[in-house]
Nucleic acid binder design. Structure first.
Lengths: 222, 222, 222, 222
DNA sequence: CATGAATGAGCTTTCATTCAT
DNA sequence: AATGAATGAAAGCTCATTCAT
């Protein structure tokens, strides 16, 4: 893992060491930041507004976070720390082996992550928006994502490919398509339709599309 | 079509009437703006930087576009004017009736639009990014999009549903899933992987996913 | 008193509540602003010049006053707060009842107000100039002036009319003429001849002009 | 007359020589300038707005007037040229010798000038406002005014003093008081009450105030 | 003569950041 | 730790003026 040039990882590690001490003020600052970043975006949010909403002095923000950029990271990183444990190798494999088929796996996985995203809708919006908007952040996070996420998806795909569940095209391309769809699904509902609540029925539709497509099959089964 | 409350459409029409006169400097300004907006986003781009890159005085930008906001519109609107004629009712129906199946339609449509987006990659990135980031713009454009785009997709879907091509779930949900995927496909490749060139093979994969899913069918046919 | 629609009065009241806290820098800003506004006028004074003269950073002005317009108000309003208490009903009546005639009253009043205006010559010039120039401010202040000032002058005039001191024309017209003259007297000396010091002798001349003009003669002496 | 250091007089003379040629466009420019200057003041009026209202290109203004300052002068000077002939020595003396008393003179003079000011209300407002506001212009015009106007008033006053019409105070002080009042009268009605139409009755009131104040009483009649 | 595109200095205002208290 | 006054660089924008056509 040659991520030594990633400011992100360094920050993640550094913050992990310090993050025990969360003042009451810090809590309010982070909450206010998440709320306003989600609403107006990082670039359009001033630290003075965050301070006002949080009910603290502007100086307090800088005492704790040093820079506005760093405040953004302090908002985003804990989200990642909660997002990825679920994707840790063991968990992935465990889910994968507890289900009968890729369809079940995908349903389980999607339901789990959608629930998590909806619970953290505001912060998820911040992450997605900034990931799209902020080139710097993208450069930091995308490698991290692919390192931690893509590789696991691949493992799972390989597992089910071995079990002969997929059509006969390279795993590479299957993974890409699935990620495109699942990613598009999550992002569109978080960013374009933020007041939307995803139903189980819709998840079923989504998974069915991935597995079977929308076309009617010749033999009558769908 | 009661879009009279859309500032966007008014602007689009008004601009269409005036847009004949394009100074050489104006051309350079718009080009510079597209390039930098695409790279760093609207909010992180200063007018002074645009002026420098365009090789004009900063005042020149404001002489022609009045405000920075208006410059953004002047960049985005022509893109829409070129994007939507292709989606005009007749074209949609024509494509639909010249193909044998929804699969063929989707391929034709995707190839056409992807080619267009890749040709206008920079400006497309600006539009997509700002649509995601800029809440104001989103409010203006989303109704316009759904009015002009969604309704046509629906018409096509209904056409093929009548021909019995789809599985037996409500058209509503089919349309939603297809758009989610196609949108995710386009956006992800424009925003997350901007240096990526979409191959015909990948489009085939994508369409196949939509039509047939990735799961192997019981009867052996894919 | 239905002045509730006056932004000015609201501002005056609001400011009265907050005006306790005056930083040292604020004091310097206001002093510099008065001086330069008086000299060159509001519209021709830049905030950067005020900052330079006040010896503060330009940002400091905006931290305290928000806008340049508001700085002007913050300069003008305290002047009004000091101008009008003297004209409060009781004071007016008190002066009026402590003198033998309207002539004495006018002398007492003029001397008092002229002394005040000369002590605050710079700020008085700002007020007069802006009142003349700034249509917005005029709309705000003139009704306020007539409400607070005119009515009191009327009371006093009525008092002396009852005592038979004036010639037999409607009080309305007497008041108008006296105000025109006194106003012209103050304004001309403040604005046109700013380096002029008004002498007691000149005040006597002025009062004699007014009195002997409108005063009914008892005999051949003036 | 050592006014050689007055830019104004030079300009007045220079312009007199050139002013024969008045393009149609020039006429429109001056008209637009007067109108907008009167309404919003010189400093708050942009040349682009003048051009728009006048229906000419912005460059045309500068072709004819060189600078914005010079346009102001070109607006103000003709007003002076029309204001002062009436005050020319002969005219003054003529009016004075055609009337029986100073009271009559003042009435005739005031009515004449008020009529003129009301006919040229817009431009008169421009002149008065800028005279008050614009320190530069004031320095140029005040000496010119006192040279041309004050001296004539003095002559007239001396004439009536010789005829024994005034109370026994120095002519100097009489003149000052009369000018203060007449000036205040004109200015207040032009600037503070611009929609006001001065009636003959009011002029009578005004003159009576002045006359009966400074006039020596022979008996008990006013 | 007339135009209007182009200029660039200067304007008001915002904002992340610092630091004395 | 917390404050909030102070900063000054940089932002978006205006405008009188110039000049090629």
């Amino acid at each position: 893992m040659k991520l030594s040039e990633s400011k992100l990882l360094d920050a993640l590690i550094a913050q992990a060491k310090l993050s025990k001490k969360h003042t009451e003020k810090q809590q309010k600052i982070v909450e206010a930041a998440i709320q306003i970043f989600a609403e107006k975006g990082y670039a359009n949010t001033s630290t003075s507004e965050i301070a006002k909403v949080a009910g603290v002095a502007e100086g307090t923000i800088f005492r704790h976070y040093g820079t506005k950029d760093n405040l953004l990271l302090s908002v985003i990183l804990p989200f990642f720390k909660e997002t990825f444990p679920v994707m840790a190798e063991e968990v992935f494999i465990e889910i994968a082996s507890n289900v009968e088929s890729f369809e079940e796996f995908l349903k389980a996985f999607l339901k789990n992550r959608i629930a998590f995203f909806l619970e953290n809708k505001a912060i998820a919006r911040v992450v997605v928006k900034e990931l799209i908007y902020n080139e710097e952040l993208k450069k930091d996070l995308l490698p991290f994502l692919s390192e931690n996420f893509l590789s696991r998806v691949h493992k799972v795909a390989d597992y089910f490919i071995e079990r002969g569940e997929f059509i006969d095209i390279p795993a590479e391309r299957i993974v890409k398509m699935v990620i495109t769809f699942v990613g598009g699904f999550l992002v569109s509902r978080l960013v374009f339709l933020p007041d939307y609540t995803v139903t189980d029925e819709e998840i079923d539709d989504a998974v069915r599309l991935v597995i079977s497509g929308i076309g009617k099959k010749d033999d009558g089964t769908e």
